[in-house]
């Protein structure tokens, strides 16, 4: 018992090394793409003057939840500006957007697959359990080896960490669609693809949106951790404040994260439950598209 040890860590290390050597070009390619995407988004957010970004954010807030939230957005972003964390916040936002968009683009199809096939579901579920419970820091190590220091390992680690709820809630949403309605689609001869597109996805939308909301929230929490591998931005500030015991800097960067988190959470949550000014406009448009109906009187004014 004394000297025996299962060399599990060594195996994984060997595996990662082997991957690095054999598929190095793949990871270089991924690095190129993700880096390009990040630089592009970051440029769009950082290049314009801060008031343009604040105005756009306020407009999104207004459309999603109303004027109170828009005012709150202006105050919050103003605070970030006031503590001189604007550029870092925008870089963090860019990291979160890129990571979440990729995570969503991967997790929704996986969720659909899991909902359609019990076999896929049985395979995907333990993998998700693994991804979700493995301490987030652990992802950083192989990501660092595969993608080298910079934003990319941070983004990749974030994607892996944040994907799980997107898959789970997509599966849950689709499986939760009223069985009889799906049967109705089948009974009238609709193809599985058509049932997915016209019945399952629209009816699962609130749950899927909750999943997207969770993906974004987890991304935000992970990009801060990703500051440790050189992803910089607010995460970098927080890591720096930790090493220097700089309480002031730590809380300033921390508040910036909280403000971004609240903004993203409220906006995506509002899109999920559909009862938003945007949702109302869309509904009014839908109603007025068909023949005139007296109840849809406000529609022409909005469209």
């Amino acid at each position: 018992m004394n000297d025996f040890r299962i060399p599990l860590g060594t195996w994984i290390e060997t595996f990662i090394e082997w991957i690095t050597v054999t598929f190095g070009f793949v990871f270089d390619f991924i690095r190129l793409i993700v880096d390009g995407a990040f630089e592009g988004v970051a440029f769009v957010l950082v290049a314009p003057p801060f008031y343009v970004i604040i105005a756009i954010a306020a407009a999104i807030g207004l459309a999603a939840r109303g004027w109170k939230f828009a005012v709150g957005t202006v105050i919050g972003l103003g605070l970030i500006l006031g503590v001189d964390q604007w550029d870092n916040a925008m870089a963090t936002l860019a990291l979160v957007l890129v990571a979440s968009i990729i995570a969503i683009a991967v997790s929704i199809p996986l969720g659909i697959l899991a909902a359609k096939s019990s076999l896929a579901s049985q395979i995907i579920r333990p993998v998700l359990d693994f991804l979700q419970t493995m301490p987030a820091f652990v992802y950083l190590v192989p990501a660092l080896i595969l993608f080298r220091v910079g934003e990319v390992p941070g983004i990749v680690a974030t994607i892996i960490f944040a994907m799980a709820p997107g898959v789970r809630l997509t599966e849950l949403g689709i499986r939760g669609v009223d069985k009889e309605v799906v049967e109705a689609g089948q009974a009238f001869g609709a193809s599985p693809w058509r049932i997915l597109r016209q019945i399952q996805l629209p009816l699962a939308t609130p749950t899927i949106m909750a999943g997207i909301n969770q993906v974004i929230m987890l991304s935000l929490s992970m990009v801060v951790i990703a500051g440790m591998v050189g992803a910089g931005a607010l995460g970098g500030e927080i890591v720096a404040s930790l090493s220097r015991l700089d309480v002031a800097l730590g809380f300033e960067a921390g508040f910036a994260v909280v403000i971004l988190a609240i903004f993203l959470d409220r906006v995506t949550a509002a899109l999920g439950n559909g009862d938003t000014p945007i949702g109302r406009v869309l509904n009014a448009r839908k109603a007025s598209r068909s023949a005139a109906q007296p109840t849809s009187a406000p529609a022409p004014a909005l469209v």
């Binding site: 009223d178 009889e180 309605v181 049967e183 109705a184 009974a187 009238f188 016209q198 019945i199 629209p202 009816l203």
Partner: peptide, 13 residues
């Protein structure tokens, strides 16, 4: 062959 369902099974959207 078409079908009518117990709980209507209309497309709510």
């Amino acid at each position: 062959i078409s079908m009518v369902f117990q709980h209507f099974a209309l497309l709510p959207h």
